[in-house]
Amino acid sequence: MRRIIAILMENEPGALSRVVGLFSQRGYNIETLNVAPTDDPTLSRLTLTTIGDDRHMEQITKHLNRLVDVVKLVDLTEGAHIERDMMLIKVRAAGADRDELKRTTDIFRGQIVDVAPSSYTIQLAGTTEKLDAFVAAVGDAQILEVVRSGVAGIARGEKVLRP
């Protein structure tokens, strides 16, 4: 099962490598990874997605909690949450394709953020599934380059992740 783990950690050199290293050392896989400082510049917020069963996840969270740099963490998939992945996708856009791509982008509520004679760069945010659907709709033949931020997530409602 796919899990989204949100981690609050010290914004220190080496902290990220400890988290990532833990996954490779223990044979766990990271699907996506997203990290940036928070409103408190001494803290970084990291969101990562991984695949694992309950037993697996228990081990991962225990080991993550054991890292001295990790202040707090939560498995967002345990409750209601919002997740967003952001994509910039450069597509071949010439002739009649230009209109078609514009329509598809509108349907997915994306924006064309760069226009060149034979290409568009489109920005799109949403769940991983939505982004995958857009990529499928555009089709391999049109795609020149894809960059995705990885999932960022937050719990719904009153629940907050603070130190």
Binding site: G14, S17, R18, G21
Partner: peptide, 14 residues
């Protein structure tokens, strides 16, 4: 050294 020792320490500092 911080990198090499990372998997075999409780914690490390530079």
């Amino acid at each position: 050294m911080v990198g090499i020792s990372r998997p075999i320490v409780k914690h490390s500092f530079m």
